[in-house]
Structure formats: structure tokens, C-alpha cells
Simulated scan of single mutants.
Amino acid sequence: MNSTGVVLSAGDWRLVLDPHRGGMVRALTRRGQDILRPMPEGADAPFDSACFPLAPYANRIAGGRFTWEGQAHVLAPNAPGQKHPLHGTAWLGNWSVETGEADRATLLHHHAAGPDWNWAFTLRQHFRLTADGLEARLELTNTDDSAMPAGLGFHPWFTRRGVSAIAFTAKAVWLADAEMLPTVRATADTLGDWKQGAALERPDLVDHCYAGWTGQLRIERGDGDIVLEGEDTPYLHLYVPPGQDFFCAEPQSTMPDAVNREAPAPLLPGETRTVTMRIRSA
């Protein structure tokens, strides 16, 4: 560890982690070139990061209200300017380094049941660099005495510099309303034919969830293509804001507002649920 965080390296790859707040990634480079948008020096807000974890739910919960096993739950908004609670609790919590080596590290987070989430859990992020790239795994363990809903994912912010197109395949896309909550399930090519590969430069905002994602997305870059892969992540949330130097492609186990729409299977006391993300050279 140094003054900028935990630094891992393998082959052409270098990863910088923030081991304390939010379990964030500060940078991921290949041959010295940014793959993820680097976090500004001195910044500590998750929205400025290169990547952060999504747990115990992904994206938004409408109005912070849902019913689980017959009991009503209400969560307050957790981010400035956001009407609905967003991305879970772990991205705003405290983390510690559980283990660390030159090419791998595990970050640990404990959550006590409270008003932001009514169940206790432990979350681990395992990071490993190889000559091919990054493998990151989230492990969520229910340490409470009752079953909880559980959604997991990663929120990487990819740099657009040098990116000519992205390509992926999914079965459908959830169209969203003005508050970015899912409304209608539509065909996957409704917002563009991503299957054939499409450029990111477009006038409209894309902030939508793709269902039935095959688990792979290709990023076409002038210095060599990158592949994003997900395991146990049938949803891909794509965020492409006009005029920005980044885009987000987020592997997730559940859709936005899943507890009110496609509720995840209960995570029983003592059980663990995992998702895996890889960012590697094609």
C-alpha cells in the first residue's frame, strides 16, 4: 500500500484500490493506458471513482419502498440529487484490507442492520490481476437471523478515449421513465443494434438495463480491444451520457427496483451469493 491506495500489478496491468471508503477502484490501466476512468487525485466520492461495488441491491428502489416476506420496508434516499435510494449501502460504507499480495487483494465490509438496510451482512471483494487482465468477485454473506433479498453487481466507469464502438448481445431492454425506473420491456435493439457494434457518440442519454445479457461485452479500442465479462450476472446496465469522457457497463445479478418487480431468491442466514466480473484483453 502507498499514499494513493493498494496497488496491484501483473504483466501490462496495474490496479489501484481505495481500501477504506466505499471499496472503490481508483484506476485500472494496461500498458500505462487508462481502461477505467481514473479517479482524480484527492477525490474520495464514489461517483468520481473508477469502479465501486453494488450491494445488497443494484440501481434504484422506487421510493425506497418494498415488501419482503410480508413486512413493509422503507429506505431513505442515499445520494445527493437522487429521489430513490441507489446502488445499495456498501459503496458508502467502510472497508478494510483482509488480505493482500503483489497481484491480488481482498477487501472486507461489515454491515450492521439499520435504517439503510434491515439485515446484517458481510461483503468481500476479491481482486486478482493476471497477464490477461482483472478478475473481481463479490461475495455477500447473510449474517442476519432472517432471509434477505440480495442483488449484486459492479459499477465500472470505462474511459471513452480511444473507444470506437461497443458490442454485446441481450434478449431485451427495460425502457425507463423520467426518474430512470424501468417501465416497459422492449426488444434489445430498441435503443440501437448493440449486437452488431455501435458507437457511443449519440445525442440521447442511455441509462437502461438489458435483460438476458450473454455475459460478454466487447470494447473496440485503437490500442487493442477489451472484453468485459460477467458470471451470475444476467443483467447489464448501460449508462452512456452525452458529451462525457466515460461510459458505464455494469454487470448485475438483478434489474433496477428488483424487489418490486423480479424479486431475487431469498438469501438465507449463513448463505453466500457471488458475482464475478472480468476486464481483460480480447
Rank of each mutant, 00 (worst) to 15 (best):
T4H: 11
V6E: 11
V7L: 13
L8W: 07
L15Y: 07
L15G: 09
D18M: 14
R21L: 14
R21I: 12
A27D: 15
L28P: 08
T29R: 12
R31D: 15
E41F: 02
A43Y: 00
A43Q: 00
A45C: 01
P46S: 04
D48V: 00
A55F: 01
P56R: 00
N59C: 09
R60E: 05
R65S: 13
Q71H: 13
Q82L: 13
T89M: 12
L92H: 10
W95K: 08
S96N: 12
V97Y: 11
T99S: 15
D103R: 15
W117C: 11
N118P: 13
A120V: 11
A120T: 14
F121C: 11
R124V: 05
H126E: 14
H126R: 14
L129D: 11
D144K: 08
S164I: 00
F168G: 05
L175I: 00
L181A: 05
P182C: 09
A188Q: 12
A188N: 08
L191G: 05
G192C: 08
L200S: 07
T214W: 04
G215R: 04
I219R: 00
E220A: 12
D225A: 10
I226Y: 01
E229A: 10
V240D: 09
P241Y: 03
G243E: 13
A249I: 02
M255H: 03
P256M: 05
D257R: 02
N260R: 08
R261C: 08
A263Q: 11
P266V: 02
L267N: 05
L268S: 11
P269T: 06
T274W: 08
T276F: 07
A282W: 14
